[in-house]
Amino acid sequence: MITPYLWRSMLYVPANRPSRLQKCARYGADALILDLEDSVPDSEKAESRLLLKQALKEPIWDSAELYGSNGGSERVDLFVRINAMRTRYWREDLEAVIPEEIFGLKVPKVEEPTKVEELDHAISRIEKASGIEEGRTKLLLSIETAKGLLQLSAICAASARVIGVGFGSEDFMTDTGIDRDNLRYARMQMTLVVKAFGLYAQDSVYPAFSDLEGLKQETEEAKRMGMDGKTAIHPNQIETIHSVFQPSDALLEKAGEICRMAEAENGRVFNYHGEMVDRPIVERYRRLLQRSREN
């Protein structure tokens, strides 16, 4: 099954660094993960949350994507990585960012389906209170422990908000004692489950950001495993990730069909093999086709 989400790269940006928040949408990543978790020390959690909330209101998030229609620009897809649900910070994180109509949350260290349900309810409550369409805020879950990996089927089914799952190598290695060279089995297992649910599968960061050759090899491996994209911790990694995650023939074929159907439907929402397709989705596929033709 092909995921409708086309992010080749997502760039992590620390929420406690205002100058980076100002510029990061210009770096060309397909989506951004604004991080309230690992890159923010406990002493700066509250301040960073406020800073991020303010930044989300500023006109700095226009997509750097050149391909698209004239007469305006689109906001880059924004995710916020909240603090893990085992901490005392996550509820305040939600209260701060959900009203700002972000694309979704990146949720670290997910291990239990009941926690995903709890998160879903908490988001719904805030969406309702903020006058935001319920279900708008999507979830991209991060599997970083053996327990989470073994529970992944139930986790994926726990909320309709779940659109994808990412692998968190560093914490997974800490949790399991498996070294980096032997993570293939876990990454593959995660991808298989995610694909069974028709969701977006995302690979972990490659921490050695100046080693672009190593990044390329690991990204190629992720693509061979069936993953759809990879996270980046430095803007210089984006280009390498994009060069590997060129769209597959199957995806291009799907994009072509959707664009043809959209033309026939003349702006109306339509059903594509059980997938509801509206204008923003058509626009994404159209851009994908234009970009791939030029490449």
Partner: peptide, 12 residues
Amino acid sequence: PLSTAIAKNVAT
């Protein structure tokens, strides 16, 4: 990275 972004726009 901003120089890179501008350069990519020029090349495109």
